[in-house]
């Protein structure tokens, strides 16, 4: 049941679709173990791909425990510290599950952890929405090179990279069937 190596796109594949599924399943178990069950959990994905991963993680949690875990998305664009150095970014929706985040254990979900600045922005955004009991961080890929004191609680894959390389996450929901996977490319291989 191993899908053919996905050769679409530049660089080399480090996770295929099955690897991503396995990583999310493992993270689901780790979250349940650390939290001693699904109580008080809320998953918030950081758009765009983090939001898709959060939904997949919620499905994985439901398959293990049989209970539905509230899932939403948290857009951090308005809280970024690099807005003025880039063209205007599109803003994605923030969807807070009906129960809110007060006194919940919020698991932030993102695709790649790099500088840590997105997570910093997410923590600020979250504090404007309420006061969670605890905030955890789950990422599919940790590629290192942190610029802030941020650490992930749950990691799909630790991927040593150089800053010149690019890590590309493609998910079927967002990028289309057949493209899914995580690839790493050197500066010369990245299409302009």
């Amino acid at each position: 049941m191993t899908p053919a190596q996905n050769t679409a796109g530049p660089g080399r594949e480090v996770l295929n679709s099955d690897d991503i599924d396995r990583a999310l399943r493992r993270i689901a178990h780790e979250i349940l173990e650390a939290n001693k069950g699904p109580e008080h959990l809320v998953l918030l994905g950081i758009p765009t791909r983090g939001a898709h991963l959060a939904r997949r993680l919620a499905d994985a949690l439901e398959r293990v425990e049989g209970t539905e875990v509230p899932v939403g998305s948290l857009d951090v664009t308005m809280y970024r510290d690099d807005l003025r150095s880039q063209p205007t970014r599109a803003v994605e929706p923030t969807v807070v599950p009906p129960g809110g985040v007060d006194d919940k254990v919020v698991v932030l979900v993102d695709d790649v952890l790099y500088s840590g600045r997105t997570v910093r922005a997410a923590l600020d955004a979250l504090s404007d929405l309420g006061r969670p009991r605890a905030v955890r961080l789950a990422v599919l890929v940790d590629r290192g090179h942190r610029e802030l004191p941020v650490r992930a609680d749950y990691v799909g894959k630790n991927l040593p990279t150089s800053t010149a390389e690019r890590v590309m996450v493609r998910l079927a929901e967002h990028d289309g069937e057949g493209t899914e996977g995580v690839r790493i490319a050197g500066p010369a291989e990245v299409a302009p």
Binding site: D75, M78, Y79, L83, A90, V91, E92, P93, T94, D124, D128, L129, G130
Partner: peptide, 18 residues
């Protein structure tokens, strides 16, 4: 973008640092 901004109107803390 205004759709996302509209959501801020329903929050307790109506403030973005942007």
């Amino acid at each position: 973008t205004a759709v996302s901004m509209h959501e801020v109107q329903d929050r307790d803390v109506k403030k973005l640092p942007t």
